[in-house]
């Protein structure tokens, strides 16, 4: 039987008269890489905040790692990882201090913290940079450390909000190697991106338009359904129909 790590049923969030997320339905299976696509302002961030236990739904239901987003947001927070361009690491702390800090926040024991810190530093090949301030590292390294930190407590699911902006094409792909590797270890990955080639790497994608899920499926199936060659073309066709604009 499939284990669903994220489930949304008619999930809706209103802000006053504005319906940011409009009755969306989706299920994400354990170990899946799920691409959550949509134009700026389509409602991705609002939905993602609900899944992370940071915002209550107005109606409908969302469960993440088996817990309800309305009533059990604290349990959700303990079982997920989160990484975005905007919030990631403390620049004035060293690599090691950042790992220790986040591992501590996630409630790992002293022994686990020590062991995990060593493991991550070694796995990322950062032995020589372990005591360097994060501010002094290249962006690509920061992104990989952020990802390692977001998964330090072995969460059921990790949410990645535009994780790969601003790096060169090789570094961007090295980040995806980490995603594939985590997924092969059973970590569920829920990712937003504006790079449409990255959408093709996902097991399944959904495309949001005006707060609703306008399409969902495997990249190849979506392309076949729309009679086009790439997810980008599906995206453009759907997003052009949007009536809502902006962030």
């Amino acid at each position: 039987m499939t284990e669903w790590v994220i489930e949304a049923e008619n999930l809706t969030r209103r802000f006053g008269a504005f319906t940011a997320v409009d009755a969306i339905n989706l299920k994400v299976a354990a170990g899946e890489i799920f691409g959550f696509l949509g134009a700026n302002g389509a409602g991705k961030t609002t939905a993602m905040r609900i899944f992370c236990g940071l915002l209550e739904p107005s109606s409908g239901r969302a469960t993440v790692a088996g817990f309800d987003a309305m009533t059990q947001s604290e349990q959700i927070k303990q079982r997920i990882g989160y990484m975005s361009q905007k919030f990631s690491l403390y620049g004035k702390l060293t690599v090691k201090q950042n790992i220790r800090f986040f591992a501590g926040i996630y409630g790992l024991s002293r022994r686990e913290v020590k062991q995990k810190t060593g493991e991550i530093v070694e796995r990322l090949g950062l032995t020589t940079a372990a005591d360097t301030l994060v501010d002094e590292l290249p962006l690509g390294w920061k992104q990989r450390i952020s990802f390692a930190v977001a998964t330090v407590h072995q969460p059921k699911v990790v949410f990645l909000d535009e994780p790969t902006g601003g790096v060169d094409p090789i570094v961007r792909r090295q980040f995806w190697d980490m995603i594939f590797e985590a997924s092969s270890r059973g970590v569920t990955v829920f990712v937003t991106t504006h790079y449409m080639d990255e959408a093709e790497y996902c097991d399944r994608v959904s495309i949001m338009v005006d707060g609703a899920v306008a399409a969902m499926g495997k990249p190849a199936e979506l392309c076949a359904e729309y009679g086009v060659a790439s997810v980008e073309e599906v995206f453009v066709a759907l997003a052009r129909k949007a009536t809502r604009h902006g962030d």
Binding site: G38, A39, N40, G165, G166, H194, E232, F235, V236, A239
Partner: peptide
């Protein structure tokens, strides 16, 4: 166009 979705970029 940094951080802008593919349609707005076009």
């Amino acid at each position: 166009t940094t951080g802008v979705d593919p349609v707005s970029r076009k």
